[in-house]
C-alpha cells in the first residue's frame, strides 16, 4: 500500500515536526480557523434554531435557508470572497460559516420540535415562563440531537478548512495544496491523514461533551 508508505514517510520526517511549516503550527492554525468558524456558525444557528423550534414557526423559512446555503458552492464562494474582500481570514470564514449553519440550524430547530410535548405542556401549566421552558425543559431534552448537529458541522468545517491554504493562509490544507503544486504526494497524504485524525478527535470530543452535558435521564430514555 503506497498510501501507507506515504503516511509513514510523512510522519517520520523530522522536519515536519517543527518550524513555521511544522505539524504543531499547522494543526494550531487549523484548529484556530475551525473553532472560529464553528463559534460563528453556532452563534447564528443555535439561537435562531432554538427560538423558531420553540414557537414551531418558521420551519419553511429554515428549510429554505438551509437549502440555499447548501446550494452555495464552498470553494467558489471562497474564490469570490477573496476577489471582493482581498486576502485574509474573513473571506475564509464566510464560506465555512455558510457551510456550517445549515446542519446547526436545521438540527436545532428539529431537535426542539421533537421534544416530547407533554413535559412542555406540564411546565407551562405549572406557570413556567416561556424562556425557562425553552432553556430548562426543551433544551435539555433536545441536547443530544443539537450536539449531533454541531458535531456534523464541526467535522465538515475541519475537513473544509483546508481551503484556507488556497488563499495563502495556513492550516493543514497547506500540506495538501503545497503537495499538489510540488507533486509531493507524501505531503498530500500526510495532510489528509491529519485531517482525518482531527475529525476522529472531534467525534471523541463531542462524545465526551455529550457524556458530561446530557442528563442521564435523557441519555438512557432517549
Amino acid at each position: 500500500m503506497n498510501v501507507l508508505t506515504f503516511i509513514h514517510a510523512f510522519f517520520s520526517d523530522g522536519s515536519h515536526w517543527h518550524g513555521y511549516d511544522g505539524i504543531p503550527t499547522r494543526l494550531t492554525e487549523h484548529l484556530h480557523y475551525s473553532l472560529q468558524a464553528l463559534a460563528i456558525a453556532a452563534v447564528i444557528g443555535l439561537p435562531i434554531g432554538l427560538i423558531t423550534g420553540h414557537y414551531g414557526r418558521g420551519g419553511n423559512a429554515i428549510a429554505l435557508v438551509a437549502t440555499g446555503s447548501r446550494a452555495l458552492p464552498t470553494f467558489g464562494l471562497l474564490v469570490l470572497m477573496v476577489m471582493w474582500l482581498g486576502f485574509g481570514l474573513g473571506p475564509v470564514m464566510i464560506p465555512l460559516v455558510v457551510l456550517a449553519v445549515p446542519p446547526i440550524l436545521v438540527t436545532t430547530y428539529e431537535a426542539v420540535r421533537s421534544v416530547d410535548p407533554s413535559p412542555v405542556d406540564a411546565a407551562r401549566g405549572m406557570g413556567m415562563p416561556e424562556s425557562r421552558i425553552l432553556l430548562q425543559v426543551e433544551l435539555p431534552g433536545a441536547l443530544p440531537l443539537i450536539l449531533g448537529g454541531l458535531r456534523s458541522a464541526a467535522i465538515q468545517i475541519v475537513s473544509t478548512a483546508t481551503i484556507a491554504a488556497y488563499v495563502g493562509l495556513g492550516g493543514i490544507g497547506r500540506y495538501i495544496i503545497d503537495g499538489l503544486y510540488q507533486r509531493n504526494y507524501e505531503k498530500v497524504v500526510g495532510g489528509a491523514t491529519l485531517v482525518a485524525v482531527l475529525a476522529l478527535v472531534t467525534l471523541g470530543v463531542f462524545w465526551a461533551v455529550a457524556r458530561v452535558a446530557v442528563s442521564p435521564g435523557v441519555r438512557r430514555s432517549g
Partner: peptide, 23 residues
C-alpha cells in the same frame, strides 16, 4: 398574571409529563 395563576393551581396530565432530565 398568567404564570402566578398557574403556579397557584396544580396541573396533572395524562402521561405525567415528567422532566426526563431531572431526578
Amino acid at each position: 398574571p398568567v404564570n402566578s395563576l398557574r403556579r397557584s393551581m396544580g396541573y396533572v396530565i395524562q402521561n405525567a409529563g415528567l422532566f426526563q432530565h431531572r431526578t
